[in-house]
Simulated assay, not measured.
Amino acid sequence: MDPLDFPADLEEDEADDLTYAVRPYAVTGGRTRTTTNEPLPVETLVQGLASPDQVGLTPERRKILELTSEQYLSVAELSAHVHLPVGIMRVLVSDLADSGQLRIHGTGSVSATSAPATSLSVLESVLNGISSL
Rank of each mutant, 00 (worst) to 15 (best):
T36C: 03
G30R: 00
G87L: 01
S79N: 02
K63Y: 05
D98A: 15
H83I: 02
S69Q: 15
L18D: 14
G30S: 09
H81C: 07
Y72C: 13
T58M: 07
V75F: 11
P59S: 08
Y25V: 04
Q54I: 01
L49D: 13
G87H: 05
A76E: 12
T32C: 07
L78E: 07
L65V: 04
G29W: 07
H81G: 00
V22P: 00
A76S: 08
D13Q: 11
V82S: 05
Q47M: 14
M89P: 03
V93P: 08
E11A: 14
N37D: 14
V82I: 09
P39L: 01
Q54R: 10
R33K: 06
L49Q: 15
T19N: 08
L67V: 02
R31D: 10
A21K: 07
L18P: 06
P85M: 02
P39R: 00
H83D: 13
A76D: 10
S74R: 03
K63Q: 10
L57K: 01
F6L: 12
L73N: 04
T35N: 08
D95G: 09
L18Q: 14
L40Y: 12
V55R: 12
G30C: 07
D17A: 15
I88R: 03
Q54Y: 03
V86T: 09
Y72D: 15
S94I: 00
P39D: 08
T28G: 12
L73E: 07
T44Q: 10
P85V: 00
Q47L: 15
V75S: 03
S69K: 08
R31Q: 08
V75D: 05
V27F: 11
G30I: 00
V82G: 10
A15Q: 14
P24A: 06
P24S: 07
Q54C: 02
E14D: 15
A21W: 09
Q71W: 05
V55C: 09
Y25Q: 09
E60L: 06
T58A: 09
T34L: 06
P52S: 05
Y20G: 04
A50F: 03
R61G: 04
T68N: 07
A50N: 04
E60D: 14
V75Q: 05
Q47W: 15
Q47V: 15
Q71P: 02
H81L: 02
R62N: 04
T68W: 12
L67C: 06
V75G: 06
R33W: 11
Y20R: 12
T19C: 13
T32F: 12
L73C: 02
T35F: 03
E60P: 10
G87P: 05
T36F: 03
Q71L: 09
S79V: 01
F6R: 08
P41L: 04
T19M: 14
D95T: 01
A26F: 13
T35W: 03
I88S: 11
L49T: 08
G87W: 06
L96N: 11
A8M: 11
L10Y: 12
G29C: 05
P41V: 00
P85L: 02
D9Y: 12
P59R: 01
L73G: 00
